[in-house]
């Protein structure tokens, strides 16, 4: 009975996933696609001076701030296209929960695992102390 219920749930889930992928994929906004945006990360890595600034560090005056006029990095793409793709005015929240959602999931499961492990260990330690007191 339990196996049948699990199998039925898996089949329904798989069917919903396949239907969603075939029907909804064209209407779905892609979070970040480097090929459509036209930014090559390897080109940026080779020419890293132009990543943050339009000016060469040797040419700028002393004390001048290195602010870019036309930033073209991945960070600027995220900042400029964030509102239209996730509708979140805070740029950090979609990075934590959307762009790097796996990272947050792993972080919170590390906490869950640590608390469960320490609960098991410390519970046994307390029981052992009580047994030692009885003896």
């Amino acid at each position: 009975m339990k196996k049948v219920a699990i199998l039925l749930a898996l089949v329904i889930f798989l069917g919903a996933g396949i239907g969603a992928v075939t029907n909804l994929k064209e209407n779905f906004a892609v979070t970040y696609n480097a090929q459509e945006v036209g930014t090559d990360a390897y080109e940026l890595y080779k020419d890293y001076v132009s990543y943050e600034s339009d000016k060469n560090p040797d040419e700028k005056a002393e004390g001048e701030r290195n602010l870019p006029e036309n930033p073209d990095g991945i960070a600027s793409i995220i900042v400029t296209t964030d509102l239209s793709e996730t509708e979140s005015i805070n740029d950090v929240a979609p990075i934590v929960f959307d762009y790097r959602g796996y990272d947050t999931m792993g972080e919170s499961f590390i906490l869950l695992t640590a608390i469960a492990g320490s609960f098991i260990i410390l519970k046994n330690m307390k029981g052992r102390e009580e047994e030692a007191d009885d003896e």
Partner: peptide, 14 residues
């Protein structure tokens, strides 16, 4: 994932 994106994709975003 059910809506046709990645695993942690922001599905009901609007």
């Amino acid at each position: 994932l059910v809506a046709g994106g990645n695993f942690v994709r922001n599905a009901i975003w609007n």
